[in-house]
Computed example of a mutant assay.
Amino acid sequence: MKPTTMEKLTITMLCQISSKLGIEDGLDPVLVEQAVSCDDMWVLGWAYPMMFPEITTPDEVAFVGDVFDMFSFIGAGYAELSPEDKKRVDVSSSHAAAWLSFAGYDGNNEGRYMSIAHTMVERLDRFSEFKGIANRNSHCPSVERYARMYAAFDSMRRDIVMRTMDADEIIQVISEAVHPDNR
């Protein structure tokens, strides 16, 4: 569902009227206006799923959610490790510490992902542990790296329900951050 130019204009004006009048009917006019003006209808599907069940989640949005899920598990798992296991993780690669937390997306080339991350965390209140850093600029391409890491994480995801990741699992995931040509 993509609104026409006239529909965008109408919705934008209605949102501005609603905001000006202070109408509180359960819909956030600023969020609705942002979603419509940026052609991010997925936002409405996530914010109001009962109202917009037909709106599907684009692949990029699902990917950003998966990346946040992965880093949530990595962070929680690392926090629970013994000092010995933390040391094992830390020395597992020369940049292990850099891959233990969400570094953001490249502001020059991955702006769409950065915008999705910001909207997901700051506007939709998802993945609250990433508040304030969701739109972090990594200053280097991240999507490919996160995709490799997520492939490793996804293969173990069903086995880590109701528990944290152990050191070996964390090492397996963060080792994928390094491009195969550089290992």
Results as ranks from 00 to 15, higher is better:
residue 63 F to R: 14
residue 84 E to F: 11
residue 24 E to C: 01
residue 112 R to N: 10
residue 147 A to W: 09
residue 66 D to S: 15
residue 54 E to P: 00
residue 98 A to G: 06
residue 181 D to M: 11
residue 32 V to M: 12
residue 143 V to N: 05
residue 181 D to A: 14
residue 2 K to C: 00
residue 149 M to I: 02
residue 93 S to Q: 10
residue 70 M to N: 07
residue 35 A to I: 02
residue 134 A to H: 08
residue 166 D to P: 03
residue 66 D to G: 10
residue 163 R to V: 00
residue 153 F to C: 12
residue 168 D to R: 13
residue 74 I to A: 07
residue 99 W to T: 00
residue 150 Y to N: 14
residue 155 S to V: 01
residue 122 E to H: 09
residue 160 I to H: 13
residue 62 A to R: 15
residue 102 F to S: 05
residue 84 E to R: 15
residue 125 D to C: 06
residue 65 G to A: 08
residue 115 S to C: 05
residue 90 D to A: 11
residue 19 S to Y: 09
residue 75 G to I: 00
residue 89 V to G: 04
residue 49 P to G: 04
residue 177 A to S: 15
residue 144 E to D: 14
residue 126 R to E: 08
residue 101 S to V: 01
residue 88 R to Q: 09
residue 176 E to A: 14
residue 43 V to E: 05
residue 53 P to I: 00
residue 147 A to Q: 14
residue 113 Y to G: 00
residue 8 K to G: 07
residue 111 G to V: 00
residue 177 A to R: 12
residue 179 H to A: 14
residue 50 M to Y: 06
residue 58 P to F: 07
residue 11 I to W: 04
residue 157 R to L: 01
residue 124 L to K: 14
residue 117 A to N: 08
residue 49 P to H: 08
residue 139 H to D: 15
residue 19 S to F: 04
residue 152 A to W: 05
residue 13 M to Q: 12
residue 56 T to L: 08
residue 102 F to I: 02
residue 84 E to N: 12
residue 131 K to N: 08
residue 106 D to W: 12
residue 74 I to D: 05
residue 159 D to E: 13
residue 33 E to W: 02
residue 13 M to C: 06
residue 86 K to W: 12
residue 116 I to W: 06
residue 176 E to G: 03
residue 66 D to Y: 10
residue 87 K to L: 07
residue 31 L to K: 15
residue 40 D to G: 05
residue 159 D to I: 01
residue 115 S to Q: 13
residue 114 M to A: 10
residue 2 K to G: 02
residue 128 S to D: 11
residue 54 E to Q: 10
residue 48 Y to A: 01
residue 123 R to D: 08
residue 37 S to Y: 01
residue 74 I to Y: 13
residue 3 P to D: 05
residue 155 S to F: 07
residue 72 S to P: 02
residue 154 D to T: 00
residue 16 Q to Y: 06
residue 20 K to V: 00
residue 88 R to S: 09
residue 161 V to D: 02
residue 33 E to C: 02
residue 17 I to S: 05
residue 158 R to H: 07
residue 150 Y to F: 14
residue 171 I to K: 11
residue 150 Y to V: 02
residue 41 M to R: 10
residue 59 D to P: 00
residue 26 G to Y: 13
residue 29 P to N: 07
residue 29 P to W: 04
residue 64 V to N: 11
residue 81 L to R: 15
residue 132 G to N: 08
residue 137 N to Q: 05
residue 35 A to F: 04
residue 128 S to W: 03
residue 130 F to M: 08
residue 3 P to I: 01
residue 9 L to A: 12
residue 84 E to H: 14
residue 122 E to A: 09
residue 107 G to C: 04
residue 41 M to Q: 11
residue 88 R to E: 08
residue 118 H to G: 03
residue 3 P to L: 06
residue 4 T to Q: 09
residue 21 L to I: 00
residue 26 G to I: 01
residue 55 I to F: 09
residue 32 V to W: 12
residue 111 G to I: 00
residue 124 L to T: 05
residue 82 S to T: 13
residue 153 F to N: 10
residue 179 H to E: 12
